[in-house]
Amino acid sequence: MATKPSSEIIRDGLWTNNPALVQVLGLCPLLAVTSTVVNAIGLGLATLMVLMGSNLAVSLIRNFVSESVRLPAFVMIIASFVTCAELLMQAFTYQLYQILGIFIPLIVTNCAILGRADAFASRNAPGPALLDGTMMGIGFLAVLIVLGGMRELIGQGSLFVDMNLLLGPAAADWVIRPFENYPDMLFMVLPPGAFVGLGLLIALKNGIDSHLEERRKASEPAPVASGSKRVRVTGHVS
Protein backbone atom coordinates (compact mmCIF):
# COMPACT_ATOMS: atom_id res chain seq x y z
CA MET A 1 0.00 0.00 0.00
CA ALA A 2 1.42 3.35 -1.05
CA THR A 3 1.92 5.70 1.88
CA LYS A 4 0.11 9.01 1.72
CA PRO A 5 2.24 12.16 1.77
CA SER A 6 2.56 13.77 5.19
CA SER A 7 0.61 16.85 4.09
CA GLU A 8 -2.35 14.69 3.10
CA ILE A 9 -2.24 12.76 6.40
CA ILE A 10 -2.28 16.04 8.32
CA ARG A 11 -5.12 17.45 6.24
CA ASP A 12 -7.14 14.25 6.61
CA GLY A 13 -6.86 14.21 10.40
CA LEU A 14 -7.56 17.88 10.98
CA TRP A 15 -10.22 18.53 8.34
CA THR A 16 -10.90 16.30 5.33
CA ASN A 17 -11.46 13.05 7.26
CA ASN A 18 -11.94 14.41 10.78
CA PRO A 19 -13.13 11.51 12.99
CA ALA A 20 -15.88 13.57 14.64
CA LEU A 21 -17.14 15.78 11.81
CA VAL A 22 -16.71 13.49 8.81
CA GLN A 23 -16.44 9.90 10.03
CA VAL A 24 -18.86 10.75 12.89
CA LEU A 25 -17.17 8.25 15.20
CA GLY A 26 -16.73 8.32 18.97
CA LEU A 27 -20.03 10.11 19.48
CA CYS A 28 -20.84 8.53 22.85
CA PRO A 29 -18.06 10.25 24.83
CA LEU A 30 -18.07 13.27 22.53
CA LEU A 31 -21.70 14.08 23.30
CA ALA A 32 -21.68 12.98 26.92
CA VAL A 33 -18.73 14.85 28.45
CA THR A 34 -18.48 18.07 26.43
CA SER A 35 -20.63 20.12 28.80
CA THR A 36 -17.49 22.09 29.77
CA VAL A 37 -14.13 22.85 28.18
CA VAL A 38 -12.12 21.13 30.91
CA ASN A 39 -14.04 17.88 30.49
CA ALA A 40 -13.52 18.06 26.73
CA ILE A 41 -9.78 18.66 27.07
CA GLY A 42 -9.38 15.83 29.58
CA LEU A 43 -11.12 13.27 27.39
CA GLY A 44 -9.50 14.63 24.23
CA LEU A 45 -5.97 14.35 25.62
CA ALA A 46 -6.61 10.80 26.79
CA THR A 47 -7.95 9.86 23.35
CA LEU A 48 -4.97 11.53 21.65
CA MET A 49 -2.53 9.56 23.80
CA VAL A 50 -4.30 6.28 23.03
CA LEU A 51 -4.47 7.00 19.30
CA MET A 52 -0.78 7.82 19.07
CA GLY A 53 0.34 4.84 21.13
CA SER A 54 -1.96 2.28 19.52
CA ASN A 55 -1.19 3.40 15.96
CA LEU A 56 2.54 3.16 16.60
CA ALA A 57 2.30 -0.24 18.32
CA VAL A 58 0.00 -1.71 15.66
CA SER A 59 2.33 -0.54 12.91
CA LEU A 60 5.33 -2.12 14.65
CA ILE A 61 3.67 -5.55 14.91
CA ARG A 62 1.79 -5.46 11.61
CA ASN A 63 4.09 -8.02 9.95
CA PHE A 64 4.05 -10.46 12.88
CA VAL A 65 0.32 -10.86 13.59
CA SER A 66 -1.74 -13.32 11.60
CA GLU A 67 -5.03 -12.32 10.04
CA SER A 68 -7.05 -14.56 12.38
CA VAL A 69 -5.99 -12.71 15.56
CA ARG A 70 -5.49 -9.27 14.06
CA LEU A 71 -8.51 -7.49 15.57
CA PRO A 72 -8.21 -9.09 19.06
CA ALA A 73 -4.55 -8.05 19.10
CA PHE A 74 -5.49 -4.48 18.19
CA VAL A 75 -8.12 -4.35 20.94
CA MET A 76 -5.59 -5.61 23.52
CA ILE A 77 -3.10 -2.94 22.45
CA ILE A 78 -5.74 -0.20 22.66
CA ALA A 79 -6.91 -1.47 26.07
CA SER A 80 -3.33 -1.35 27.37
CA PHE A 81 -2.92 2.29 26.39
CA VAL A 82 -6.34 3.17 27.80
CA THR A 83 -5.29 1.60 31.11
CA CYS A 84 -2.13 3.74 31.09
CA ALA A 85 -4.19 6.88 30.42
CA GLU A 86 -6.62 5.92 33.18
CA LEU A 87 -3.84 5.38 35.73
CA LEU A 88 -2.19 8.68 34.80
CA MET A 89 -5.46 10.54 35.29
CA GLN A 90 -6.04 8.82 38.62
CA ALA A 91 -2.57 9.88 39.74
CA PHE A 92 -2.50 13.51 38.53
CA THR A 93 -6.09 14.64 37.86
CA TYR A 94 -8.17 12.45 40.13
CA GLN A 95 -11.14 14.82 40.46
CA LEU A 96 -11.40 15.19 36.68
CA TYR A 97 -11.10 11.42 36.36
CA GLN A 98 -14.07 11.02 38.70
CA ILE A 99 -16.12 13.47 36.62
CA LEU A 100 -15.34 11.70 33.35
CA GLY A 101 -16.07 8.37 35.01
CA ILE A 102 -16.87 5.44 32.72
CA PHE A 103 -16.03 7.39 29.56
CA ILE A 104 -12.28 6.92 30.05
CA PRO A 105 -12.45 3.08 30.01
CA LEU A 106 -14.93 3.33 27.13
CA ILE A 107 -12.14 4.72 24.93
CA VAL A 108 -11.32 1.04 24.30
CA THR A 109 -14.53 0.75 22.27
CA ASN A 110 -14.05 4.04 20.41
CA CYS A 111 -14.51 3.13 16.75
CA ALA A 112 -12.25 5.99 15.66
CA ILE A 113 -9.26 4.37 17.38
CA LEU A 114 -9.89 0.81 16.22
CA GLY A 115 -10.74 2.11 12.77
CA ARG A 116 -7.41 3.94 12.39
CA ALA A 117 -5.51 0.91 13.70
CA ASP A 118 -7.14 -1.35 11.14
CA ALA A 119 -7.44 1.00 8.18
CA PHE A 120 -4.12 2.83 8.40
CA ALA A 121 -1.63 1.72 11.08
CA SER A 122 -1.75 -1.96 10.11
CA ARG A 123 -0.89 -1.05 6.50
CA ASN A 124 1.79 1.61 6.94
CA ALA A 125 5.22 2.15 8.47
CA PRO A 126 5.55 3.45 12.06
CA GLY A 127 6.32 7.06 11.06
CA PRO A 128 3.19 7.68 8.98
CA ALA A 129 1.11 5.63 11.43
CA LEU A 130 2.23 7.79 14.35
CA LEU A 131 1.55 10.96 12.35
CA ASP A 132 -1.91 9.68 11.41
CA GLY A 133 -2.74 8.90 15.04
CA THR A 134 -1.48 12.31 16.15
CA MET A 135 -3.47 14.25 13.55
CA MET A 136 -6.66 12.22 14.06
CA GLY A 137 -6.31 12.72 17.81
CA ILE A 138 -5.75 16.46 17.46
CA GLY A 139 -8.71 16.73 15.09
CA PHE A 140 -10.93 14.89 17.58
CA LEU A 141 -9.59 17.02 20.46
CA ALA A 142 -10.29 20.24 18.54
CA VAL A 143 -13.91 19.27 17.95
CA LEU A 144 -14.31 18.34 21.62
CA ILE A 145 -12.93 21.72 22.74
CA VAL A 146 -15.06 23.75 20.32
CA LEU A 147 -18.20 21.81 21.22
CA GLY A 148 -17.40 22.01 24.94
CA GLY A 149 -16.77 25.75 24.71
CA MET A 150 -20.01 26.29 22.80
CA ARG A 151 -22.09 24.32 25.29
CA GLU A 152 -20.44 25.88 28.34
CA LEU A 153 -20.78 29.42 27.01
CA ILE A 154 -24.40 29.10 25.85
CA GLY A 155 -25.49 26.81 28.68
CA GLN A 156 -23.77 28.50 31.65
CA GLY A 157 -22.53 31.84 30.33
CA SER A 158 -18.91 31.05 31.22
CA LEU A 159 -15.71 29.55 29.85
CA PHE A 160 -12.86 27.58 31.43
CA VAL A 161 -14.65 26.73 34.65
CA ASP A 162 -12.75 24.23 36.86
CA MET A 163 -9.61 24.33 34.71
CA ASN A 164 -7.70 23.82 37.96
CA LEU A 165 -8.88 20.19 37.88
CA LEU A 166 -6.60 19.67 34.89
CA LEU A 167 -3.86 22.29 35.18
CA GLY A 168 -3.64 22.82 38.94
CA PRO A 169 -4.36 25.78 41.26
CA ALA A 170 -2.71 28.26 38.87
CA ALA A 171 -5.65 27.84 36.46
CA ALA A 172 -8.34 28.49 39.08
CA ASP A 173 -8.66 32.14 38.00
CA TRP A 174 -8.98 31.45 34.29
CA VAL A 175 -12.78 31.60 34.38
CA ILE A 176 -14.28 33.99 31.82
CA ARG A 177 -17.81 35.29 32.35
CA PRO A 178 -18.68 37.59 29.44
CA PHE A 179 -22.31 38.04 30.54
CA GLU A 180 -23.52 39.26 33.90
CA ASN A 181 -26.63 37.66 35.41
CA TYR A 182 -26.74 35.15 32.58
CA PRO A 183 -29.82 32.88 32.72
CA ASP A 184 -28.52 29.34 32.37
CA MET A 185 -29.79 27.46 29.32
CA LEU A 186 -30.19 23.91 30.61
CA PHE A 187 -30.89 22.56 27.11
CA MET A 188 -27.28 23.10 26.00
CA VAL A 189 -25.86 21.47 29.13
CA LEU A 190 -27.92 18.30 28.61
CA PRO A 191 -27.16 15.70 25.88
CA PRO A 192 -29.76 17.08 23.41
CA GLY A 193 -27.78 20.30 23.33
CA ALA A 194 -24.71 18.29 22.38
CA PHE A 195 -26.55 16.82 19.37
CA VAL A 196 -27.59 20.29 18.24
CA GLY A 197 -24.10 21.70 18.75
CA LEU A 198 -22.45 18.89 16.83
CA GLY A 199 -25.00 19.24 14.03
CA LEU A 200 -24.16 22.94 13.75
CA LEU A 201 -20.44 22.19 13.58
CA ILE A 202 -20.94 19.57 10.85
CA ALA A 203 -23.15 22.00 8.90
CA LEU A 204 -20.51 24.72 9.26
CA LYS A 205 -17.78 22.41 7.95
CA ASN A 206 -19.92 21.31 5.02
CA GLY A 207 -20.72 24.93 4.21
CA ILE A 208 -17.03 25.87 4.24
CA ASP A 209 -16.18 22.89 2.03
CA SER A 210 -18.91 23.83 -0.45
CA HIS A 211 -17.73 27.44 -0.56
CA LEU A 212 -14.12 26.39 -1.17
CA GLU A 213 -15.22 23.98 -3.90
CA GLU A 214 -17.22 26.71 -5.65
CA ARG A 215 -14.24 29.06 -5.51
CA ARG A 216 -11.98 26.36 -6.91
CA LYS A 217 -14.34 25.70 -9.79
CA ALA A 218 -14.72 29.42 -10.49
CA SER A 219 -10.94 29.85 -10.69
CA GLU A 220 -10.52 27.04 -13.20
CA PRO A 221 -10.41 27.94 -16.92
CA ALA A 222 -13.55 27.11 -18.86
CA PRO A 223 -13.16 23.83 -20.79
CA VAL A 224 -13.13 23.94 -24.60
CA ALA A 225 -16.16 22.22 -26.12
CA SER A 226 -15.10 18.92 -27.65
CA GLY A 227 -17.53 19.23 -30.56
CA SER A 228 -16.20 22.52 -31.82
CA LYS A 229 -14.05 22.37 -34.94
CA ARG A 230 -11.87 24.92 -36.60
CA VAL A 231 -12.71 25.59 -40.24
CA ARG A 232 -9.77 26.46 -42.46
CA VAL A 233 -10.65 28.63 -45.43
CA THR A 234 -8.39 28.49 -48.45
CA GLY A 235 -8.68 30.43 -51.68
CA HIS A 236 -6.86 31.32 -54.89
CA VAL A 237 -5.76 34.79 -55.81
CA SER A 238 -6.15 35.36 -59.55
Rank of each mutant, 00 (worst) to 15 (best):
1 M>T: 10
1 M>I: 11
6 S>G: 12
9 I>L: 15
10 I>K: 05
11 R>L: 15
12 D>Q: 13
12 D>A: 14
15 W>G: 14
18 N>L: 14
20 A>L: 15
22 V>W: 06
22 V>K: 11
25 L>V: 15
27 L>K: 03
27 L>T: 09
29 P>N: 06
30 L>R: 01
30 L>E: 03
30 L>Q: 01
33 V>M: 05
37 V>Q: 04
37 V>F: 07
38 V>M: 08
39 N>T: 14
41 I>H: 01
44 G>A: 07
47 T>G: 11
48 L>Y: 09
48 L>N: 09
50 V>Q: 07
52 M>F: 07
53 G>M: 10
54 S>T: 12
56 L>D: 06
58 V>K: 07
60 L>D: 01
60 L>P: 02
61 I>V: 15
62 R>N: 12
66 S>V: 15
67 E>C: 12
68 S>A: 15
69 V>Q: 12
79 A>N: 02
79 A>M: 02
80 S>V: 01
81 F>D: 00
82 V>L: 00
86 E>Y: 12
86 E>D: 11
92 F>L: 10
92 F>N: 06
93 T>A: 11
93 T>Q: 12
97 Y>W: 13
98 Q>Y: 00
102 I>D: 03
103 F>W: 11
104 I>F: 01
105 P>V: 09
107 I>D: 05
108 V>F: 03
109 T>N: 10
110 N>D: 09
112 A>L: 14
116 R>C: 13
117 A>G: 15
119 A>V: 09
120 F>P: 00
124 N>H: 14
125 A>L: 13
126 P>Q: 08
128 P>A: 08
129 A>T: 13
130 L>I: 11
130 L>P: 03
132 D>F: 03
132 D>C: 06
135 M>R: 07
139 G>I: 09
140 F>G: 06
140 F>M: 05
140 F>S: 12
140 F>N: 08
142 A>D: 02
143 V>T: 04
143 V>F: 01
144 L>H: 13
146 V>G: 06
149 G>F: 05
150 M>F: 05
151 R>L: 04
151 R>W: 01
152 E>K: 01
152 E>Y: 00
154 I>R: 01
156 Q>D: 02
159 L>G: 02
161 V>A: 07
162 D>E: 09
163 M>C: 07
165 L>H: 04
165 L>F: 03
166 L>D: 08
167 L>V: 08
169 P>E: 10
169 P>G: 10
170 A>L: 04
172 A>C: 04
174 W>S: 05
175 V>P: 00
178 P>R: 06
181 N>V: 09
182 Y>L: 05
185 M>L: 09
185 M>V: 11
186 L>V: 03
188 M>A: 04
193 G>F: 02
195 F>Q: 02
196 V>P: 00
198 L>T: 07
198 L>E: 01
200 L>Q: 01
201 L>R: 06
202 I>S: 05
204 L>C: 09
204 L>E: 02
205 K>F: 07
206 N>Q: 11
207 G>E: 07
208 I>V: 15
208 I>A: 11
209 D>S: 09
209 D>R: 06
212 L>Q: 10
213 E>H: 12
213 E>R: 15
214 E>Y: 09
215 R>P: 08
217 K>C: 13
219 S>F: 04
219 S>M: 13
223 P>S: 05
225 A>L: 12
226 S>Y: 06
226 S>N: 12
228 S>K: 15
232 R>Q: 04
234 T>P: 00
235 G>P: 00
235 G>I: 00
238 S>P: 08
